[in-house]
Nucleic acid binder design. Structure first.
Lengths: 112, 112
DNA sequence: GACTGGTATGACGATAAACGCATAAAGGGT
DNA sequence: ACCCTTTATGCGTTTATCGTCATACCAGTC
């Protein structure tokens, strides 16, 4: 299953890439990480990130369309949350890779 | 470790996003999947994907800078390969998520 | 119902990335 | 030495995305 063995269909490749594109923006990753600490409203996210209100709202909208965040209204405020483990898992895999690369470069320098 | 628990540094978020950006293009994903089947030269990749020669060469260059592909010269040809399990693992995680989403949507339709 | 505070969205300029064309570089064969 | 093949790269055009300003929207308050 997955990518191994046979070539994924163009449609699937397109969906993969669209998903990864969501994570290709530091702002969205930062919002996801903030929400990982617990549900917050937009004002708190603005405070935490320093982004403009419209920017925060837009990025949340994009993440919502992929079900990476949810929202519920509390009166006039909108409380956003992100409970999926997926982004954590993906980032951990990438982090392991980044560390391996640096270690390899380090060894290459030491052996030279 | 990873993203869980504490907020990653801006630098780390930047590196994560740069990595995911590499996977955010169907063309690059397709090249990676092709190379998963085994080493190939550029001409074979052009044949397999239908992309232009310069396009293939450029995308391979980007993937190489992240060590997602390697190359060795065989005379005038350049043989590219990609042996990392990372992209497979990432895609499998995303695929699982996409399937869960569709199943949830399906159930919502059935219960309506 | 007008007003206020909080959030989403249309319009738009700036910036970045894709993609192709033409060309250069690099390595054989005659 | 010349030419041919294969791949890499400078350049220009097009397209897409970001980020902001202004404005519309929505829910509660007086």
């Amino acid at each position: 299953m997955g990518v191994a063995g046979s070539m994924p269909s163009p449609q699937l490749l397109e969906e993969y890439s669209q998903f990864f594109r969501l994570l290709s923006e530091p702002a969205r990753l930062q919002l996801l990480c903030q929400l990982k600490a617990g549900p917050m409203d937009v004002a708190a996210l603005i405070e935490a990130t320093g982004f403009s209100q419209s920017h925060v709202s837009r990025q949340l909208g994009q993440l919502q369309r992929a079900d990476l965040v949810r929202c519920e209204r509390d009166g006039v405020r909108t409380i956003w949350s992100a409970d999926s483990e997926l982004v954590d898992d993906l980032c951990n895999l990438v982090q392991t890779r980044l560390r391996q690369r640096l270690e390899a470069q380090l060894q290459q320098l030491q052996s030279a």
